[in-house]
């Protein structure tokens, strides 16, 4: 078997194990939380007999491992139970909200990449020039603005003063897709700005670190032009640590940008989580936590694959 295949298979097996492990932890954690599942589902005035029937029906009086297996079977089929708060299936509830969060994530992640990579390179190439000093200071400023304050500022400037969008007036994509994207651009900017600043800072210092290394001097000794050295030799090396940061950010925004969703009144996953927590709607909380954990694990798996693709040293271990 080729080295890369072995590596991939190994990583895939550990992906599956991690997912299983996470599901066990999540399931157990929510079983331990005090409170009677039947009571919270049927309400305080249910009779003991009703409760007993409900427990029987839902398999609540079985042992923990059996309940877990039943739950996992249902979960694999996409059935995460019933939301007490919204009186609907958790899967249906989440898929509606997920749509919003995914769009927000895609838009803001694209913004981050498209803006930060060129600016990071520009800043590093000009090391300590006026433009670089300005970019460095600005990235520090933007990293310091809390995203929800930024959201408020964007609402104030673009929504209230310039009237480019109507604050709080979320438009469903099924209704008018263009207006939906137009509206979503503003929260996406609020999510992206601090993270873009962070990526620029990271990329810049990574590039500067690489530029000092011996292999760059070797490339110069060959008579290579600086710009070719940057793209052929330095950039790939410099991106290795940046990929880790980008992956963490992606996981972060896929988990739902709770604060920004709150500011812009978006019906996304983050706000669903907050309201489910507030109303102790544990079926929903459990499903969302499982979703987020899976996103994190799968992204880490993908990052491992990307690493082995660009860095030959990874396969060694």
């Amino acid at each position: 078997m080729k080295v890369w295949m072995k590596y991939t298979v190994k990583k895939f097996i550990s992906l599956v194990i991690s997912l299983l492990f996470t599901s066990i932890v999540t399931f157990t954690a929510f079983q331990v939380i005090p409170g009677d599942g039947a009571l919270s589902a049927l309400g305080m005035d249910a009779t003991e007999k009703q409760l007993e029937e409900y427990r029987e029906e839902m398999g609540l009086n079985k042992s923990l491992p059996i309940r877990y297996i039943n739950w996992l079977k249902d979960a694999l089929k996409g059935d995460f139970g019933y939301s007490s708060q919204y009186q609907m299936k958790v899967s249906a509830l989440i898929s509606g909200r997920l749509n919003v969060t995914l769009w927000l994530a895609v838009l803001s992640f694209l913004l981050i990449i498209v803006v930060s990579i060129p600016i990071g390179i520009l800043s590093a190439r000009q090391n300590d020039g006026t433009l670089d000093v300005l970019i460095t200071l600005l990235t520090q400023v933007f990293m310091s603005v809390p995203p929800f304050f930024l959201g408020l500022l964007i609402t104030l400037i673009f929504g209230i003063i310039l009237k480019w969008f109507t604050p709080g007036n979320y438009i469903d994509p099924g209704e008018n897709f263009r207006m939906f994207i137009r509206f979503m651009m503003f929260p996406a900017i609020a999510v992206a700005v601090p993270k873009t600043a962070m990526t620029i800072k990271f990329l810049r210092s990574s590039l500067l670190r690489e530029m000092e290394l011996d292999y760059v001097r070797t490339a110069r000794s060959k008579g290579m032009a600086n710009i070719s050295i940057l793209f052929r030799h330095i950039l790939k090396n410099a991106l290795i640590p940046v990929i880790t940061i980008l992956a963490m950010m992606l996981a972060d925004i896929l988990a739902g940008s709770i604060l920004v969703e709150q500011v812009f009144n978006l019906p996304g996953l983050g706000r669903l989580l907050v309201s489910s927590i507030a109303n102790r709607d544990y079926a929903v909380v459990q499903a969302i936590v499982l979703y987020i954990a899976s996103v994190v694990i799968i992204i880490n798996f993908l990052v491992d694959l990307i690493y082995q693709w660009i860095d030959p040293r990874v396969k060694r271990d």
């Binding site: 290394l213 011996d214 292999y215 001097r217 070797t218 030799h233 090396n237 660009i310 860095d311 030959p312």
Partner: peptide, 10 residues
């Protein structure tokens, strides 16, 4: 130092 003088990714 031939280790650091070559680009590790090529």
């Amino acid at each position: 130092d031939s280790m650091t003088s070559f680009n590790p990714l090529l």
